[in-house]
Structures are given as structure tokens and as C-alpha cells.
Design a binder for these strands. Structure first.
Lengths: 181, 181
DNA sequence: TGAAAAAGTCAACATGACTGACATAAATTC
DNA sequence: GAATTTATGTCAGTCATGTTGACTTTTTCA
């Protein structure tokens, strides 16, 4: 009875004196909770890969975006991740020390440190994308025919309107670069 | 140029010596990133409510599920949140101390501590649901006609298969309780 | 030449997670 | 009735990841 399946048991009415007072938008609670549980499992995938090598979610995010945008500046990465440079600094130093990321001075502007994945970093990033893509592909398959388009439209629309265009550009830029490369 | 909009600028080809080597599942990177950005903004909503009262995300989750399942046992909450009782303990104590959650001994089994939201806790939980529902409603409106069903199917299918049934039961149980109350 | 930008670093601190050990009360089993 | 198990709570220490604030170095640019 300590399992989540204990919820199968019929609820004891005596212990439920107050109701949850549903409002007009109450039905969307289902989506709120589904989003919570889905995201937890979604980020759980990379966690399993990272745990054995002593890294965490912060490392995942950095490796992912550096691999997706090779040559990215530190400031750009900070904008995407929305963390302070001190937070990023620690994670980035570990990744550089352990040979997952390389930092080279920019040619045009030598103040810049451009970030590149090493072959080792690329391989790890591909692992992350592979496992998360597998989960998404499985989910889309279980849904209807235009599931992918629907999911893309929904998730994009969930993003703050003022960030939406930036995210779209970010993704398109990476896709273009991957096609060209 | 320190803005995310800097990604609008044409990429400097000279600084992009390696390509991102797309694989068979590579296109789903878009969905991976959209999920990341969407979830960030999604949990950012309650953060704004919580910051002024000195609470964090952990408090949000506890208040949400206690309000959704009034009379829930501590062990059940631990199963849902998948954290240790020590972690929950701190957060729960603060919520009880500040009058958002009430803990009463079970009638049938007096070892149990059944968790109920106070009126103050209910009000806060409703605020969370309201702001997140508003975001979801806005997103669904921007999508097609069956956007809601599609989103529900997709998110549910994203959950680990072995947890899926449990999550469905959890949601249905709460909905039933809300209808009855 | 002097201001501004890009990046890095030191120090201190907050949050939310963790492990391990132990305590208490109540229920269950032998 | 005694022993065991269950549900909960708590003390102590640690870790990962975030924060603010202050300061430095290098380089660019007006």
C-alpha cells in the first residue's frame, strides 16, 4: 500500500470533508498534471546517462546547446539558459576539464570564447538526443497522424509570446547549420 | 547584441568548422527543445506567485497535490513527488507552520497523518491552477480544434509506460472527488 | 585614450535534493 | 501479550545548482 497504485483503492469518503471547489478552468488541471509527469520522465532519461559519469542536469543542458550551436559565445549560452555566468562557469569548467567542451578565442573578436563540443562531447550529446527522441517518437506513434505537428504547435504556443520568435529562430538556425554541415 | 535576438544575425561560417551530424531521429530535436522552453515558462508562472511569500517550487508541488487530493497520506504524497521524507518534511513543516496545510491523524489508522489544505492553502492552490490554466487555454486556442485531446494524448504517451496507468488513475480519482464535492 | 563589452573569478549564501541513523506511536502478527 | 512492522518525524551532514556582489583582465571601439 505504499505504492502509487494505492490510489486504486476506493477513497474513504469520511476522510474527505472538503471538496476541491472546481472553477471555470478546472478541467485543465489534467493537462497541468500531465505536463508535470511527462516532463519529469522526459528529463529522467538524460539523468540516467549522466549519473554514472558524475554529471547533472546542468551539464546536460550545456552540452546539448553547445553541440547544437557549435561556436556559440558564452553570452549567447547564458541568454538561452537564463542562469548567471557564475553558475555556468562552474559547469563549463568541469566540462572543459573533462574534455567534453572546447573553448577557443573568436577570430573576429578575440574577447569572445567560442564553445565547441569535442568528439567526446558530441557523442554524449547524441546519446541525449537519441534517448529523448526515442521517447518522443514512441509517444507520437501512439497518437494520431498529425501528432507531431500538433505537439509542436502546442508546445510553441505554451512559450511566453515575447520569447516565442526567439525560440523559433534559435531552432531554425540550428537546423540550417546542421543541414549545411 | 547580448540578447537572445542576436541569433537573428547571420551565422559566421568561419567559426563553424564542425557540423552537428544529424541522425535518423535528429528532426525531433525541435520537439526536445520546445518541450524544454515550454516547461520553463510553465513553471515560471507559479514561481512569480511564490517569490513574494518566500516559498519555492517544492511548496508549489506540495500545495497543489494536497489541494487536489484532500486527506492524502504522507506516504502517498511521497510516492507522487518521488522525493525523500526528509525533503518533504521540511517543506511540509513550513506549510503547516504558516497555515497553508493542516495535518490530522487518520480515523481508521491513527498512525497516519492526513493532509488537508486550509482555506488559505486552497486559495493559493487555486491561484496556481488559474495562472497555469490560463497559459494552457491560450495555447490550445492558438492551435486547431482538437488541440486539447491531442495535447492530452501526447503528454500521457510521454510518460513511462509503467507509470501511465497510475497517473491516469490519480487524475481520475481527483476529478471524481471534485465532482462529488 | 578612455569607455564599454566579453569573459572569468572569489566569496558568501539559498534552495531543494540526498544518505544514514534513530525515535515514537500505532497497528498487526505470532 | 510480546514481537514485529508500518507510518511518520527528526537530527546531522552532504551535494548540485542556483543566486548576489565585487572585482580583474583582455580587447574592442568611439
Amino acid at each position: 500500500m505504499t505504492d502509487i497504485n494505492s490510489f486504486l483503492a476506493p477513497a474513504a469518503a469520511a476522510d474527505r470533508p472538503r471538496s476541491a471547489a472546481p472553477e471555470a478552468e478546472a478541467p485543465l488541471i489534467d493537462l497541468i498534471e500531465l505536463f508535470f509527469f511527462a516532463y519529469r520522465d522526459f528529463v529522467g532519461d538524460p539523468d540516467e546517462i549522466l549519473a554514472p559519469i558524475g554529471f547533472g542536469r546542468a551539464h546536460h543542458r550545456v552540452i546539448h546547446f553547445v553541440n547544437r550551436h557549435p561556436g556559440m559565445r558564452v553570452t549567447e549560452l547564458l541568454d538561452i539558459l537564463r542562469i548567471t555566468k557564475q553558475s555556468l562557469g562552474r559547469v563549463l569548467r568541469e566540462l572543459v576539464d573533462e574534455g567534453f567542451v572546447e573553448s577557443r578565442a573568436g577570430q573576429a573578436d578575440r574577447r569572445q570564447r567560442l564553445l565547441y563540443p569535442t568528439p567526446k562531447g558530441e557523442a554524449l550529446a547524441r546519446e541525449f538526443v537519441a534517448i529523448q527522441s526515442r521517447r518522443i517518437a514512441r509517444a507520437l506513434k501512439a497518437c494520431g497522424p498529425d501528432a507531431r505537428g500538433a505537439a509542436e504547435r502546442f508546445l510553441l504556443a505554451m512559450i511566453d509570446p515575447e520569447d516565442r520568435a526567439g525560440v523559433e529562430r534559435l531552432i531554425q538556425r540550428a537546423d540550417r547549420a546542421a543541414d549545411a554541415g
